[in-house]
């Protein structure tokens, strides 16, 4: 037998809500209460408990909408604090990052070792490294050189970097000229720190220790470009050709590794 929605069954549902609504009506007071079809121990707890009571339904709907709308608020995403370099309308220069008060010495920035920070002894550039040069220092110097110096000075230091080739009025000089081969180490440090001619200073981009590492690497470059076959230790091979790049002019790519047998999957 298929269930049909008869008028009887509907009236039962109506009644249920009618009776619950009716209980709110004051006119029943004092009169004989209609028989509660769903007796409970506490009649007040039963109030509006109908599964689809209009009030409960609308409360639930509002709650859902509020909950959904709450998800649209971005208070937690955008908290009232500044991320680094964020804009601030409080200061006239619109910067949230404030410069330290003049004369401030931050921790670790006392700069007691003046040679380490100036490369000068008195007024003249010194010709020694403030710390011993190890393989790590040279490797670090090479890395930093390739990042900050190579764009203009080229990776071998001949001044044929890619940036000047795009229209600099003057190319940077090669490190391998007489004047620079004889220049003391402190001179290079001073040029990186304060700039020279049309070269800007790199004091904000390169830390002092890294500047010295670059200086050591520049000296290594000078030695390498001025070397003869007799300088090569016995048993070591010198590559006779410059490395090839997959895409010319792109220093972002690594050179193609030659003489490497293609790896074969074990069968």
């Amino acid at each position: 037998m298929s269930p049909t929605f008869s008028a009887d069954r509907f009236s039962a549902i109506f009644r249920k809500s009618e009776s619950s609504r009716a209980r709110l009506e004051p006119r029943w007071r004092g009169e004989s209460k209609p028989k509660d079809p769903y007796p409970t121990t506490d009649s007040s707890a039963h109030r509006g408990k109908g599964l689809c009571g209009l009030k409960a339904c609308s409360t639930l709907a509002w709650f859902t909408i509020l909950l959904a709308l709450a998800g649209c608020r971005q208070d937690m995403h955008d908290q009232p604090r500044f991320k680094p370099l964020a804009e601030s309308d409080f200061y006239s220069d619109l910067r949230s990052a404030r410069p330290p008060v003049e004369g401030t010495v931050a921790r670790g920035q006392l700069r007691e070792d003046s040679y380490l920070y100036t490369g000068k002894m008195g007024n003249n550039p010194g010709d020694y490294m403030p710390f011993p040069v190890t393989t790590e220092v040279l490797a670090r110097g090479q890395q930093r050189y390739d990042i900050y110096c190579a764009p203009c000075h080229s990776r071998v230091g001949d001044g044929n970097g890619v940036i000047p080739s795009r229209g600099f009025p003057r190319k940077p000089p090669s490190y391998h000229i007489e004047r620079l081969r004889k220049a003391p180490l402190g001179y290079f440090f001073d040029v990186i720190t304060n700039g020279f001619g049309s070269m800007p200073d790199y004091s904000s981009q390169i830390e002092p220790r890294d500047r010295w590492a670059i200086v050591a690497y520049v000296r290594a470059l000078q030695l390498s470009q001025d070397a003869t076959a007799a300088d090569v230790p016995a048993g070591q091979k010198v590559p006779s050709e410059p490395p090839r790049f997959e895409e010319l002019g792109s220093g972002a790519t690594l050179p193609v590794v030659e003489n490497k047998p293609a790896h074969e999957e074990p069968k």
């Binding site: 991320k83 680094p84 390739d146 990042i147 940036i163 800007p200 002019g249 792109s250 972002a252 790519t253």
Partner: peptide, 28 residues
């Protein structure tokens, strides 16, 4: 980057040592 071969760190100097990679100042 691709055209001129400039390393990321040329401009984003603090990326290796700081939480913030650093947006270069106009001077860069």
């Amino acid at each position: 980057v691709a055209g001129l071969g400039i390393d990321c760190r040329y401009c984003h100097t603090s990326v290796e040592t700081s939480s913030f990679a650093g947006i270069p100042p106009t001077k860069t």
